[in-house]
Design a protein around this nucleic acid. Structure first.
Lengths: 141, 141
DNA sequence: AAATTTGTTTAGAGAAGTTCTAAACTGTTG
DNA sequence: CAACAGTTTAGAACTTCTCTAAACAAATTT
């Protein structure tokens, strides 16, 4: 089923890699395509590794980690820490928040508009706000 | 310097352990005292292990982990996940939020009143809200 | 287009944090 | 105080992630 599409380089993906100062290698292009095609979703390094393998893309786990961090640094992904032991990455980089299902260890998006914060404290002097994360932890009834 | 106070069992600590169905063992009493005396603070398992050792309390790391989870489950502590690789525990169990200093990997409390959330989405059907965590990630200017 | 340079990938080792195991121990109960 | 059930412990094991150094590939130079 799943076949590798080496022949269609996806211009926007190439541009984004170039902007980030990253060479468009076979691995990075394949992973970027996988992520683009996936739509908004949350995944761990292991999950992306498995997904890549399933799509016929041979990439080492070390490269998965490198790439996830590079993409995160370049603003193509967002890292979310909600449970001890593993990091999630989010392909949705717009302003938004998350539900976290404690039982299943899964995340789902909350549109930015759906969480209205009326007031926040000033950041401590000498610091600036990088991001405000709201996580609504839910559990099964 | 720091000496062990085996002789003063701290009635409230004993009560809390009893309420949680936990036997008041030497280790649990010592750790509970350390945490009570510390006031509001955030720490990792390793940090508590070091603090216990410094206070002359001999406790294995496995017991630190067991105890932290038991105390968290009993509502005496709160677990906070903000950075991949290690969990923090919080002795402040009142309703409040956190600043997270990305450079130093440290937490500080924000009083519950200082974050006003005007609206939140409904939890997905079949689930209830366990907790809403707001983390303001700040970095040095 | 070959040669050189520089950045990238890889397997496997290594590190860090946490959990597991099974034996020894301790608090509780009868 | 004996017997039971829960607890602690050291160390092994496990999971997630990072490091290393050698092989490799993309870019640059000639």
């Amino acid at each position: 089923m799943a076949s590798i599409q080496k022949s269609r380089p996806y211009a926007p993906v190439l541009d984004r890699l170039k902007q980030a100062g990253l060479r468009p290698t076979r691995q990075r292009i394949a992973l970027a395509k996988l992520l683009c095609d996936a739509g908004d979703c949350h995944f761990t390094a292991e999950q992306l590794h498995a997904k890549a393998a399933a799509a016929g893309v041979r990439v080492s786990l070390a490269t998965i980690y490198n790439t996830l961090h590079q993409f995160t640094h370049a603003g193509l992904l967002r890292e979310i820490v909600v449970s001890p032991g593993s990091s999630y990455f989010d392909t949705n980089i717009s302003d938004h928040h998350h539900f976290f299902f404690e039982g299943r260890g899964e995340l789902s998006d909350i549109a930015g508009d759906d969480v209205v914060i009326a007031s926040l404290p000033q950041p401590p002097s000498g610091t600036t706000v990088d991001r405000v994360d709201v996580v609504i932890r839910v559990k099964n009834i």
